[in-house]
Write a protein that binds this DNA or RNA. Structure first.
Length: 111
RNA sequence: UGAGCAAAACAGACAGUCGCGGGGAAAGUAAUUUUUUACUUUUCAUGAGGAAAGUCCGGGCUUCACAGAGCAAGGGUGCCGGUUAACGACCGGUGGAGGCAACUCUAAGGAUAGUGCAACAGAAAAGAACCGCCGAGAUUUUCGGUAAGGAUGAAAAGGCGAGGUAAGAGCUCACCGGCAAUCCGGAGACGGGUUGGCCGUGUAAACCCCACCCGAAGCAACACAAGACUGCACGAUAGCUUGCUCGGCUGUGCGAAUUGUGGCUUGAGGUAAUCAGCAAUGGUUAUCCUAGAUAGAUGGCUGUCAGAUACAGAACCCGGCUUAUAGUUUUGCUCAAAUC
RNA sequence: GGGCCAUUAGCUCAGUCGGUAGAGCACUUGACUUUUAAUCAAGUUGUCCGGCGUUCGAAUCGCCGAUGGCUCA
């Protein structure tokens, strides 16, 4: 079960105060939230394309994040913003990139 | 075989696995007198389109306005008949345009109700006369007749031929176009004929005239419940404070951010058969229930099919129209060539 | 979910009751200057967002689209 960010102010808080890690397909924002759980927000703006394209981008990100989440540290808010290049991207290259970006952010549990 | 025309259907499928939305069933826990409610777990079936899109029309539903009718304003529609809940949609026809054909396209009422416009060119763009032609005077110009010929233009005063004439002219006649009257066929648009008189252009997707139609706004509508703001008004009436008055509190009414629930999917519904109709469509019978989210659910991976996936994602619901669209399949028909 | 508007030269805009499409800046060339700038003179520049239609003729009128923007709840 993934807890998702809903309100606009929560997104704004992450954009302004969090760390950002840009990639080719997406940008990851990462911030500590003092709640003890892990929350995820996905953004696909109108710039990317029409409704169908945006849905596809959101689903690909969601599925990748779902697989990655169990290995990550609790107590953070994550926002993933899709970029234009995601339109032609396939599942695995997006997954590799997200993994790289999150590693940079130090999101994974380390022994 | 080639080229083409029309009408339809599909929109990757199947298996495994992980995950998501709402729903059913079972079990457990908590609250509760019960009903029931909330949470957790397990399990079962189910879950985007032909355009879900654009928002160009029409309707249901809801609120507001009017609760009688007419007129005006504004907007729309515009050959005829039918279908429909309704429509600017659809079907069948008529006229017109295109194509050898199958067939396709068609905003197609009125220009003798009125007003406007028709650049440049041209004598003249609507009651026409520059050159010309003819006649008369006069002697190089005037008067009259004329609209065949010339030139301009997108468009030039019905077309074309014959008769006729001073020259000409629907002046007369034949054919054609158009108009009027009338007869026949048709439900009608209209088609066919007869007779008459010979007829001042185009534009109404210019204003307009005629006929018909239209109250406004939208599910973020709206209904119910709670209700911050310590909001505004009342406090004449009820209660408390008190012996009484003032005051205060409770209270009553109103506005209202916001939250929750309903609206929300059984409907002008789908499928099949049959009957009526050329068809759109309608009737009857049987049968089925098939998303309902609220930051918004359909995705990932693996395998098989020869290979590959276009345009694209429901948000109150229907009927159309328009636009985007890879590829596959079916049916009927036309033309050309060849063979029998 | 509705409503409204715009699109014209490289840029910013005129032209909108149909009749050969313009201004400023920019650009090019020439003059002036030792040179540049400024100034002066001359010149170039358009699928009038796309398609179809009405008309003799369309940037202008009608219809269907595209893109961009504004706005209401």
């Amino acid at each position: 079960m993934v807890i998702s960010l809903t309100e606009n102010y929560e997104f704004q808080r992450v954009y302004k105060k969090g760390q950002s890690y840009p990639g080719r397909y997406a940008v990851v924002y990462y911030r500590k939230n003092n709640r003890g759980n892990l929350r995820l927000g996905i953004t696909a703006t109108k710039k990317i394309g029409k409704a169908c394209v945006r849905n596809r981008a959101r689903r690909l990100i969601y599925e990748n994040m779902r697989l990655l989440l169990p290995t990550m540290e609790q107590g953070y808010d994550i926002v993933v913003v899709a970029r234009n290049a995601i339109v032609g991207a396939d599942f695995f290259s997006l997954g590799k990139e997200l993994q790289r970006l999150l590693q940079k952010a130090g999101a994974f549990l380390h022994e």
